[in-house]
Simulated assay, not measured.
Amino acid sequence: MTEPRRHPDESAKAAAIRPELARWARYLRAHWLPIGFLLLAGIVSAVQEWGLGPGARAVLVDWSSTNLNNLRGRPIEALVASAFVFEPELWSRLAIAVLALLALVDRFGNLRAGLLVGAGHVLATGVSQAFLATRIAAGRAPHTLAAMADVGPSYLVYTALSAVVLYGPGRGPRALALLYLLVNAPDLVDGFTDEDVTAVGHLTALLVGALLGAYARPRPPAAQDRRPGVTNPVS
């Protein structure tokens, strides 16, 4: 039994589609970190927006917050969950986070970018909450702030934007990242002078992106001396 012959037009369409599918497959492999973040955070945001009532939404935010109470009892769960729970302005904050990760991955790669923003998220949370604990112990902040709502990937985003501005993949992403930071600079400065916990975390995240980014960025291979008559030493 012979197989039916394909129509020439069908064969041409299949041949045209294969390179496109291969291109998209390469793009997905090269950007699995921001794409995975988009999928997971997008699902959580959709559940928040359309699947939970106000009471359940408040419970989710309270459970996910990286406040002093949660960090003392279950730090791992709080640190992981808080990066995927957006409150308020879910979709705009999700878009900014994904764009920042895309630009960072283009320069650092998925693994280095993930380690960098993970370090920024953890260190900024630790420094800001330690700062708050010191203020509470000194009587300069109320004890109720130990249970404050503190969710969202803003520390991750500020780490990524700082690294993109300084070491980014091109002028376009660097200019956009710088513009975003400049637009938000007044709030950052005002919050820091008012000893706001989030502002302390954002400043820490910026420093992490700048300092650790210098070590995490891939180095170009050493240029070989191709002058006539010059050989490179064998290491």
Rank of each mutant, 00 (worst) to 15 (best):
L178S: 02
A119S: 14
P186S: 10
P169Q: 12
L161T: 00
T125I: 12
D150Q: 09
A133H: 02
P173Y: 08
A119H: 04
G114V: 11
G152F: 11
R107H: 10
A163N: 02
F131N: 10
S128D: 04
R135I: 03
A175W: 14
S128F: 12
L161S: 01
Y167V: 04
P153A: 12
T144V: 15
V157S: 12
T134R: 09
R112D: 00
V127W: 01
G170P: 01
L166R: 01
Y180H: 13
V165P: 00
S128V: 03
V183L: 15
A160G: 02
L181I: 07
H121R: 06
H121T: 09
A130R: 08
V164C: 03
A137S: 13
H143W: 10
D106P: 01
S128M: 10
L161G: 00
P173L: 10
F131H: 07
G168W: 13
L132T: 10
R140W: 13
A133P: 00
H143Q: 12
L111Q: 10
P142L: 14
I136E: 12
G139I: 07
R171C: 02
I136Q: 06
L166D: 01
L132C: 06
V122Q: 04
I136H: 02
S154M: 13
P169G: 14
L181P: 07
N110M: 09
A160C: 05
G114P: 10
G118L: 03
L111R: 15
A133Y: 04
D106N: 12
L116R: 09
P153L: 15
A130L: 15
L132S: 06
A124G: 08
L145S: 02
A119N: 03
A175P: 09
L111H: 12
T125G: 02
G120Q: 10
A113H: 00
L179F: 15
G168D: 11
L182W: 06
R171V: 11
A137P: 02
R107N: 10
S162Q: 04
F131K: 02
R140P: 00
A119Y: 06
L115A: 13
A138C: 07
H143L: 14
Q129F: 08
A137V: 07
L179H: 02
V122C: 06
L116G: 05
N110D: 15
R112Y: 05
R107W: 11
S162H: 03
V183H: 03
A149F: 11
R174E: 11
A141V: 04
R140L: 15
A137E: 14
H143G: 05
V117A: 04
Y155E: 03
Y155T: 01
R135W: 05
D187I: 04
L123C: 02
G114Q: 13
L132P: 06
V183Y: 09
G139C: 06
N184C: 07
A137W: 08
L166M: 10
N110Y: 11
V151Q: 03
H121G: 06
V122P: 01
V183F: 15
L156P: 00
P169V: 12
T159G: 08
T125M: 10
L145W: 11
L176H: 01
L182H: 03
H121W: 12
A160W: 00
A160H: 00
